[in-house]
């Protein structure tokens, strides 16, 4: 369900992150170049309610992974705040966990699965071996698998281990960063179903990060669409798919390959994602937008709060979007 009157579990408030991607100082002086700043995330605000799955969807350079890392505390924001529960967070908290994209790089290849899972167990009074076995069974593997090494498992099984590891910390909230994009379709379905079941059973909240609209639609209650580091639209799932407001959301939906669109001859979207180091002026989407006018080229749109959803677009604000 959507964030109603209940207090938010996670709140991102005007979040921003700038990376310095300049060359070293000496090279800059010699080559007469300026500092290069990459605005990976700019002014992103959203809330995640308890027991809600909030998805961030976007293409490369949208800043979705950066936001996920900032939420769990692996990266510090350069602007804005993150609040967990009622109190602004200080330092890292074990109530937050993360499931990573790569089933291969996310586990130390030289550790046994038991130790990989046990590492996240925060409570020292727990019998780690027993707990690891219990968690493995919860994610559909067997307790004996705890003695094995990661390379003895397939990609899908490793992602189950990653889920077990995240659960070992007894979290309220898990950031899932493209957890299935490295998996095959049939295995992806297994992992997505497992994650959905666990979310219901343990009353978890997810921040689900993905580039795949179909996956997001299957997992999320609420969806935020990112373009070049800005949140362009934020809406409940059904509303977003039934009536996408932002032209970029529409383009994404239009471009997503469909199983029932045999020999589709629809005109493909125009243009490509601009260089995030040198983004277009005004609304970053204007060079690709069919509705762009002069105002879009000069003035960045502000976020327009509608009933239960937000959108940042001049065309919608002016009623030109039809």
């Amino acid at each position: 369900m959507t964030a109603g009157p209940r207090p938010a579990l996670v709140r991102a408030d005007h979040l921003g992150r700038v990376f310095d991607v300049s060359k070293p100082w000496l090279n800059r002086v010699l080559e007469g170049e300026d500092r290069k700043l990459l605005h990976a995330v700019t002014d992103v605000s959203f809330e995640i309610a308890p027991n809600e799955v909030y998805a961030l969807v976007g293409e490369s350079g949208s800043g979705k992974s950066t936001i996920g890392k900032m939420i769990v505390g692996l990266l510090q924001p350069t602007a804005g705040d993150i609040a967990i529960g009622e109190s602004p967070r200080t330092g890292r908290s074990t109530r937050l966990q993360m499931i990573f994209q790569s089933p291969f790089a996310s586990m130390n290849p030289r550790w046994r699965v038991r130790d990989i899972i046990a590492e996240t167990i925060a409570d020292p009074s727990i019998d780690r071996g027993a707990r690891a076995g219990e968690l493995l069974e919860k994610v559909g593997l067997s307790a004996e698998d705890a003695e094995k090494f990661p390379h003895e498992f397939s990609g899908g099984q490793r992602q189950r281990i990653a889920v077990a590891r995240a659960l070992a910390a007894d979290p309220d909230f898990i950031v899932c960063d493209e957890p299935t994009s490295a998996l095959d379709v049939s295995v992806q379905a297994q992992v997505l179903n497992l994650m959905r079941d666990l979310q219901e059973e343990l009353a978890l909240s997810y921040l689900f990060i993905s580039h795949d609209l179909a996956v997001v639609r299957y997992m999320a209650d609420r969806i935020g669409v990112l373009y070049l580091g800005r949140l362009v639209e934020d809406a409940p799932r059904d509303a977003l798919f039934a009536e996408p407001l932002h032209p970029y959301t529409r383009m994404l939906l239009e471009a997503a390959p469909r199983l029932d669109a045999f020999g589709r001859e629809a005109p493909p979207p125009q243009g490509e994602i601009p260089d995030p180091i040198d983004p277009p002026s005004g609304c970053a989407f204007h060079p690709r937008c069919p509705l762009a006018n002069r105002r879009c080229k000069t003035e960045a749109p502000r976020t327009l709060a509608l009933e239960n959803r937000c959108v940042a677009c001049h065309a919608v604000e002016e009623g030109r979007s039809a």
Binding site: V72, L74, Q97, M98, F100, S106, N108, A122
Partner: peptide, 25 residues
């Protein structure tokens, strides 16, 4: 690599990560 990020999320100290995770690899 992400396993180091996972260890950081588990509140392991930099020394523990360096010698427990990175060194063997």
């Amino acid at each position: 690599k992400e396993y180091v990020a996972a260890a950081r999320l588990a509140n392991r100290s930099p020394l523990a990560i360096m010698f427990g995770h990175v060194l063997p690899n």
